[in-house]
Amino acid sequence: MKRILVACGNGIATSTVVATKIKEYLNEKNVQVEMTQTKLMEVPSKVQDYDLLITTGQFEGQTGGVPVVKGMPILTGIGAEETKEEVLNILTKA
């Protein structure tokens, strides 16, 4: 099972939206994932245990090679499909 870390400002609001929608999408595609939500400030100390990091906003910290996807389109609805596909591609390729 792939593990995804979803980070936003407080680990509550926007990360819940993104985590829920990505999970629904991946389940439709029969990809099982485990989602964990966190605060952006805690990403550096947690990210190495995950296969993918999704952030809802700007993030410039180190991820030690873990791929990063920007989740903002999921919130605004503009470009949401492309973002979901990007996530799927990363998970199925690796």
Binding site: C8, G9, N10, S15, G57, Q58, L75, T76, G77
Partner: peptide, 20 residues
């Protein structure tokens, strides 16, 4: 303008430095 939660900007490095 689509109103979003301010959570989308607090990851900015200047914001984090100031907050810390």
């Amino acid at each position: 303008f689509i109103g979003l939660d301010a959570a989308v900007v607090v990851g900015n490095p200047d914001v984090i430095t100031t907050a810390l």
